[in-house]
Each structure stands twice: as structure tokens, then as C-alpha cells.
Computed example of a mutant assay.
Amino acid sequence: MCLSDMEEEEARSFLTRFTDEFPTALEQDTPLPANPLSPKVSLHELHGESLDLGLRLLSARGAPPLLASLLCHSAVSELLQSDLSTFHCPLEDEHHTVCESQSDALPVLLQSAPVQRLFVNELINAAIRWQQNVPALPAVSRPLVSTHAIRNARRKMEDKHVVIPHFSQLFGLNDGIQRSYLAVFDGHGGVDSASFAAVHLHVTLSRQKDLTSDPESAFKQAFTQTDQMLQQRAQRERVRSGSTAVAALIQGQRLLVAWLGDSQALLVRNGTEEEIMDPHKPDRECGFCLGFCLGFSPGDFDQKPYVSSEADCCSLELRGDEDYLLLACDGFFDSVRPSAVPRLVLEALRNLGAGNAGVAQVLVSRAKESGSSDNITVVIMFLRSPREILRDSASSE
């Protein structure tokens, strides 16, 4: 199956606009059109940081999400096959060290700006090729997603969230299984850990060999490996922040949710909420997390071993009667009860219209009005058409 005529025209229109803006590859001294996340990047971090830059660049220019995922996959595949030795940082760099408990071999660091310019040029080259001859793009559904996040009364915004509706296409997983990914990260003591997890957790997840055969184990392992990568970043850049995390992967007809800390996921089925996870609260003793600790979170290396990076994970089969999946940080759930969510979403759909993506903004506003002063982030992925939800609600009244 290929795209519909309307979707193909949307793809052609974007490629024309993009290649008009970037008719040739960037010259060596041309500023990057999007800033890298860090001045130096390790080989293990390059995949995630390149995808993040590419998706930001394309999204800012209105790229259709599927096309953006396919372009980024093509560009990063070319980048990772390139000779990157000319971008290596000098080994005598004062921050290029690892702790004694790890390998004596120094990690290879790359200069971000020139290596990301190479990535952007691969992105431009792919767009030019496709503009001249648009390939047959797969016909996959585009779920309606609503997101909203505010700093609120806090001095800094330390939340991050990620939505990847075309996970399989972004990572070139050609097993015929459609996947979507969404996550919320609630940082504390700074945003660095949340930002790192938001860029790398889904990349690490995509690399797990047992993603299809044992997805729960794959999700847990992805959390652990991302935390290990973050420890390496922390040691060379003195990162001392932490973050909670809740992430969901819809893999075919299976929903997987993994979490550390008190950010939560909520499934609503036929207008009724289902609490599908037990969040880690600060007063919950579990494993080696003491009652007075911050809970479970990636990062927080000064607190280890009192704070764990071992995620919990749940899995359930989707039946087709699920309305939506909601992910949010504690800034939302501390002031809005899960049982109130279906009514709030239904009211928002009625007031805004079934095709409106402003539902999350309504929920964030309600949490603020209800007394939350914390950062608030809400992500909703509709698993059924909002029009069906409204219709079924009207018929049941």
C-alpha cells in the first residue's frame, strides 16, 4: 500500500519547499539551521542527537511526520557509515575522562557542529533525490496526538516529552509491525538528565534484539543502558540532575508502558479510566530505594545506590475499544485525579471539536487552576477517532 493522493501531494509540497530553501549541501562555514544539543558527542550518542536535530529541523518546516521519519532514517544511516575520524576531539581534552571503575579506554568524542553539518547535508541530499523522484512511501496511520507543557510557577522548565508516531520507519524496522512511542520526563535539579533521556531512550529501545520477542525485557534494558550512557555524559560534563520517566510503546496490538518515578500513564477505555501502572512515590520502599529518596529516576548519580535506574514495565493487549493513552508528570496528577480525566477530555472534545489537538492544553490549564505550581506536561495519543468517542458518549447518555 502507498500513500493516498492527498498525502503524496503533501509530501511533494514539503520536499519542494525544503529543497528550495536548501538547494545544495551546506558549505563548511555555513551555520547549522538547527543547534546541536552539545558541543561534543560520543559515538554512542551520535545516533540520538542526529535524529533529534533532524526531527526538530524538519518539524519546524512543517514536514509530514512519516516523511520526516523516513528522511531522518535515510540521513542517519548514511552518516553512521561515514568516516568520522576527522571530527574526533583531541584525546588531551580536560573533560575527556572516565572514572576508574569503567574501562581504561577513553570514549571517542566528536565535534558536534561539523559532524552534524555532515548529517544535515545527508538530509538535504535525500530530500533532493526524493523531490526529483518521490519513492513509494508506506501507507501507515497517523494517530491524533495532543501535547502541552508549561513551566508554571517554577523558576525553570525541567520537563521534556517525546512523541514518535512512526517509530518503525524512523529506525528502519522492516518487520511489518507498526509502532508508536511517547514519553514524558520530569527533571529535578536541572533539565540535563531529562533532556538526555528524551533524546536517547527511544534510540536505545530500537536497538534491543528482543524488542519483538520479549518487549518488556527490551524496555527495561533500554532504561538501564540509557542510564549508563548518561553516567558517561555526567562524568565528562558534571551533570548532577535526575529525572523521572514514563514511556509507552504501541507495538502492533500490544501496549507497553515502562516507568521510573512518579510520572504516570493512564489508559481510557470506553470512557472509563484504567490505572495500568503503580508509580514510584517517594514514600514507597522498593528494592534499594529508601523512603526519603526522590523515587526512581535516571541520573541522580550522587544518590546511587539509593535511587534505582531499573524500570518497571507492564504490557497488555489492545482490544480496539481503547479511547486514548495519556502520559503526564506529577505536576498534573498531583492536582487532577485519574478518575476526572475522562470527563475533562470529553468536555474538551465537545468544546473544541473532534479534530482539534488542543485537548492537552485544556487538561494542563485545569491542573494549574486546581492548584498545581509545578511544571506540567500532558501527552495524549488517541487510539480511536475522537468522533467515535463523542458519538459513543452521546449514545450512552
Rank of each mutant, 00 (worst) to 15 (best):
P143W: 07
R56K: 15
I389L: 10
G62T: 09
E237A: 14
F196S: 03
G48H: 06
A360P: 07
L43I: 14
H47T: 14
D392A: 13
S195I: 05
D186C: 09
K368R: 15
L26S: 05
P33C: 05
D330I: 13
S168L: 01
E285Q: 11
Q225W: 10
Q102P: 00
R337C: 03
P282W: 03
S370W: 02
R391Y: 10
F185D: 01
T377K: 06
V98M: 11
L106W: 06
I250G: 02
L144C: 04
A194C: 08
E158H: 07
D321I: 09
A258T: 11
L55G: 02
E273A: 15
L352I: 10
N125P: 00
A340S: 15
G190N: 07
G190I: 04
K304P: 00
Q178E: 14
T204C: 06
K160S: 04
F301K: 12
A149M: 11
A245Q: 06
I376V: 14
G371I: 07
L352T: 09
H188L: 02
D20W: 01
Q303R: 14
R366Q: 15
L325F: 10
R12C: 02
K40I: 15
H47W: 07
L57C: 07
A354Y: 01
M229E: 10
Q28T: 14
S396D: 08
I164F: 01
I124S: 02
A139P: 02
E388R: 14
S103T: 15
L211S: 05
F18T: 07
Q231W: 12
A348S: 15
N351H: 09
S373N: 08
C329R: 10
D283Y: 13
S193I: 06
T204R: 10
Q303M: 14
P33N: 06
V41M: 05
